[in-house]
Amino acid sequence: MTNPAWWSSVGKFFVESGQNLLAVAGIVVAAVIIVWILHYVIRLVVGRIVNGAKSKAQVADTQALDRSPVASVRLVQRTRTLGSILRNIVNVTAVIVVLILILSVLAPNALGSLTLLTAAVGAGLGFGAQNIVKDVLNGIFIVAEDQIGIGDVVDLGLATGVVESVSVRITQVRDVNGTLWYVRNGEVTRIGNMSLGWSRVIIDLSVPVDADIDAVEESMLQAARSLAKDPKWRTRIIEQPEVWGLESVTGDALVIRLVMKTRAGAKDDVARELRMRLKHAMDELGVKLPQLNSIMLTGLEGAQRVRGANPPKTKPVPVDADVVWKPKRSPRKPKKPADGGTEPET
């Protein structure tokens, strides 16, 4: 006869296995439901923000936002990227929690014994993957703080060009030669975004030392103002041009600086047209531009003085007629010329 205790142990095994399977199935089903709910909430929030940006810009699709303010485009890009990051975080967290719960159901004693091994493996992975963690964290801050966006012209130190893709670990930048650079976000220590706000066109024009400076400055200013009034270009120019005056004086040439504030994306086009008009203005004035052996720095490299970011105004500041400040000068003794007369003071 078969031992009743054996049948009892077999029945107990199947009952416990069935309970464990039901517990595992319940954990998996609950995890799937929770992940679905979180994904639904994330999609709902992202969709509401994107649709709000579209309705505010009065467009029907995301691509049409290129005709709307840049802030709306950047908002859509940033929101979708953050939504993708949140979904990935939810998926990874759900998988880890489900595995731990299943292991606690199937092998309750094994979980405690594997604690030390798990800590050692986690420490090893953390040490080996610290660069990846650094890239991901820095990428999240870059996206969340809206430091760069797709289509921006940026200088990341490691690469300079147009941003084609921004992810949590890698930023893709295509330079002027067409090379696509993959820059790790953890390696980015500084970001220069040349597509936000406004830009400044800085032109350093070299003229002969015997040229009439006042006439040259007036001719440069008139050429720049005519560009600012041109219907083709006036929408790209923010403020009226200014002449900052002499930047350097050498024995070969005088360098006069002209600046003009433009929209961020129109700096290069405005600078080319302005150089052409300045050349025509100098030709009409009869000023022959000198040939210099040294390279004249322009733009960011040439803005070396502290007041370059906040230049002095070209118009005179009105002074109260009752209070006029005059600098004190030390009295000068008249010099006696060689013939013994007295030289009048000037």
Rank of each mutant, 00 (worst) to 15 (best):
T2Y: 09
P4V: 07
P4Y: 10
A5D: 14
A5S: 14
E16N: 12
G18C: 14
N20M: 03
L22S: 11
A25I: 09
V28G: 14
V29D: 11
A31G: 08
A31K: 13
I37L: 11
I42K: 05
R43E: 07
I49A: 03
V50G: 08
V50N: 11
N51M: 04
K56G: 05
Q58D: 05
T62G: 01
L65Q: 00
R67C: 01
V73F: 05
T79C: 05
T81R: 12
S84T: 11
I85R: 12
I85N: 14
I85H: 12
R87T: 05
R87I: 09
R87C: 07
V90L: 05
V95C: 13
V97D: 10
L99R: 01
L103F: 07
A107M: 15
L111G: 14
L114G: 15
A119V: 12
G124K: 14
G126W: 10
F127T: 08
F127Q: 04
A129H: 07
I140W: 11
V143I: 15
A144C: 11
D146N: 05
I150L: 08
G157D: 05
G161R: 10
S165T: 15
D175C: 10
D175Y: 13
T179V: 15
M194F: 08
S195Q: 08
L196K: 15
L196C: 08
G197D: 04
S199T: 13
R200D: 10
I203F: 06
D204H: 14
V207E: 01
D212G: 07
D212F: 11
D212Q: 13
A224G: 02
L227Q: 00
D230C: 01
E239G: 04
E239D: 11
Q240S: 02
P241I: 14
S248Y: 02
V255I: 14
I256M: 03
R257S: 06
G265M: 08
D268S: 02
V270N: 02
L274Y: 00
M276R: 02
R277I: 05
A281D: 00
M282G: 00
E284W: 07
P290Y: 06
N293C: 04
G299M: 03
R305Q: 07
K315W: 04
V317S: 08
P318R: 12
D322E: 13
D322N: 15
R329K: 02
S330G: 02
K335A: 12
K335G: 12
K335H: 06
K336N: 13
P337K: 13
A338F: 11
D339E: 04
G340P: 08
E343G: 09
P344I: 14
E345D: 14
